[in-house]
Structures are given as structure tokens and as C-alpha cells.
């Protein structure tokens, strides 16, 4: 306690919550993590289909996906969250209620959050995947077709696997943002890390301390993800037979992720399509 200087920082409260968080806080942390993972996974799958639909021959389908992307990228996530949970119920369209999946109760608010984050992120993922598919050299499609693959087979066995390499850096950025954006789910009452912190704050009045703890846990999540992402990128590079010089420190990989440069290794043979340069990592 540093009360004499007018600064009220409860050091012992801070340390005890940091090193030995309450069960409620840990549950909030877990909710944050799975909300982000489930939403990002579903959004990636949905985004792939949206990206493929954008290449479809059927014009109305292309237009529908364009409209979808336009709306979800052009409106605030918070507004989408309110409309999907409270709004749909208010107009009597749909009310999210608790359901049980494999013996696990999934609260309605969590479902609404997953649905919203997925729909929102899928709009971004579809753009990322679209640009990444375009970044695969057109000679690859022709090579696949020349061996008798149908365009669908070529897409599945040749183009999509190669596009993955271009998808990972911007996807990593989005997942980083996703983990932080899950805090918005607190407004509809999802007990994730931010809401739990708010509750601890209002009962203990150690506002700065508990949010500092929360911030450090968010930082830990995004940092761990940074390592995981680098490992995935290196693994993909190895599968391409590309050997990159080891990075000098984790900080340099952090910096690289903020401004994604696709395939930064000088040893890479193929050029990277300029279409990818339109991807904006810091758009939220």
C-alpha cells in the first residue's frame, strides 16, 4: 500500500490474483479462449466457402456474398452482437436459450457470441482466403488440370493447400484480434475474462489491479499465440522445402506479424502476388 503518496495500488491483491486467480476468473479465461478458438475455426471454414462462392459462376451468389461481406465489415461488432442476441429476441425472430451438447450446457449468450463472432470474422476470412487463393500462381491450376484433374479437384488438392501458406499470417493477426474482441461479449452477459474482472472490480474496488491482471492474461494469450503461429509458419515452410534462417528473437517475429510480409524468406523461389498487399491487418 502506498497510501501516503496518494497512490492506491494494492500490491498483494494484484499478486495474489495474478499468481492464484479465483475459480471464476479462470472460468472466464477459459471462456475467452474457447470463444475465440471456436469462433475463429468456424469463421475460417465459413470464410472458405464464402471465398469459393465469390468465384462462382452464379452471379446472384457472388452478389449475396459481396453484400454479406459489405455489411459485416462495415458495421461495429458490438452492434452486431446486440442485434443478434437482444435484437432477434426483441423482434421475436429467434431467442438463444441454453442447450446441452455432449453433456455440456452451452448458455444462450455464449451461442449468440459464437454466432456473431463467427459471422463477423467469416466476412474478413473470406477476403483473406480469396486473396490467398488468387496469390497461388495460375500455372499451378494449369499443371493440375493438365494431369486430368477437374477444376474442383485442382482447387482441393493443389490450390487450397498452397493458399494456406498465404492465409496463416493474416489469419494469425485476426485470431490475435479475436481473443481481445471476445471481451465485447460481456455486454450480452457472457462470463468471459473481462466480465469476471468487472465483477471482481465492483466487489473489491481494486479496479486498476484486477484489470492489470486481466491485461496481463490477455497479453499472455496473444504472446503464446505468437509463438504458435511462428511454429505453424516454420512448419509450413519446411513442408515447402524452404529453410529460413532462424529468427534472432521472438520480438522480431512479433514485429513481422504486425506488418505481415508473406514468405519473408529470401530463399523463396516464387513471387508473391500483389493482390495480397491489399490485406489490411490493422483494420479494427
Amino acid at each position: 500500500m502506498l497510501a501516503t503518496t496518494g497512490l492506491h495500488f494494492n500490491t498483494s491483491f494484484f499478486w495474489s490474483h495474478l499468481t492464484n486467480p479465483t475459480t471464476a476468473f479462470l472460468q472466464g479465461l477459459w471462456t475467452t479462449v474457447y470463444l475465440a478458438i471456436v469462433s475463429q475455426t468456424l469463421a475460417t471454414i465459413l470464410g472458405l466457402f464464402l471465398a469459393l462462392a465469390r468465384r462462382s459462376k452464379i452471379a446472384p451468389l457472388r452478389a449475396a456474398v459481396w453484400l454479406y461481406t459489405w455489411i459485416f465489415r462495415g458495421t461495429p461488432l458490438l452492434v452486431q452482437l446486440m442485434m443478434i442476441y437482444d435484437g432477434l429476441a426483441a423482434v421475436g425472430l429467434y431467442r438463444f436459450s441454453n442447450i446441452t451438447i455432449a453433456g455440456l450446457v452451452v448458455p444462450g449468450v455464449v451461442q449468440a457470441a459464437v454466432v456473431t463472432f463467427t459471422l463477423n470474422e467469416a466476412a474478413y476470412m473470406s477476403e483473406i482466403i480469396r486473396a490467398s487463393l488468387n496469390a497461388v500462381d495460375s500455372g499451378q491450376l494449369e499443371a493440375a488440370l493438365s494431369t486430368g484433374m477437374t477444376p474442383m479437384q485442382a482447387m482441393r488438392h493443389v490450390i487450397v493447400p498452397q493458399a494456406v501458406r498465404f492465409v496463416i499470417p493474416p489469419l494469425g493477426n485476426d485470431f490475435n484480434a479475436m481473443m481481445k474482441n471476445t471481451s465485447l461479449a460481456s455486454v450480452i452477459g457472457v462470463s468471459e475474462m473481462f466480465l469476471v474482472s468487472t465483477e471482481i472490480s465492483s466487489t473489491t474496488f481494486n479496479t486498476f489491479e484486477i484489470f492489470a491482471v486481466a491485461a496481463l492474461y490477455y497479453l499472455a494469450l496473444t504472446t503464446v499465440w505468437g509463438f504458435v503461429q511462428s511454429a505453424i509458419e516454420r512448419r509450413i515452410d519446411r513442408r515447402w522445402g524452404i529453410v529460413r534462417p532462424p529468427r534472432s528473437s521472438w520480438l522480431s517475429s512479433w514485429g513481422r506479424r504486425q506488418v505481415p510480409s508473406f514468405g519473408s524468406g529470401a530463399t523463396i523461389g516464387g513471387s508473391i502476388d500483389p493482390a495480397l498487399e491489399g490485406l489490411d491487418p490493422g483494420r479494427r
Binding site: 494449369e142 499443371a143 488440370l145 486430368g148 484433374m149 488438392h157 493447400p161 523461389g269
Partner: peptide, 29 residues
């Protein structure tokens, strides 16, 4: 596609699949 399977095409710039080994390149088709 069925017709193309019977016609080989060798490109000026090879167009090998960069994410696959030599053997995988040959085996995929």
C-alpha cells in the same frame, strides 16, 4: 478433365507444386 488426362503438358516454367516433394509431384495425378 478425362480428355486432358491422356494428354501430357510440359510447361516452359515447369509449374511444379512447390509444397510437394518430387515424388509427390509425380504421384498426385
Amino acid at each position: 478433365a478425362r480428355q486432358r488426362a491422356e494428354i501430357g503438358f510440359v510447361f516452359q516454367h515447369f509449374n511444379l507444386y512447390p509444397n510437394k516433394t518430387a515424388l509427390e509431384n509425380v504421384c498426385l495425378g
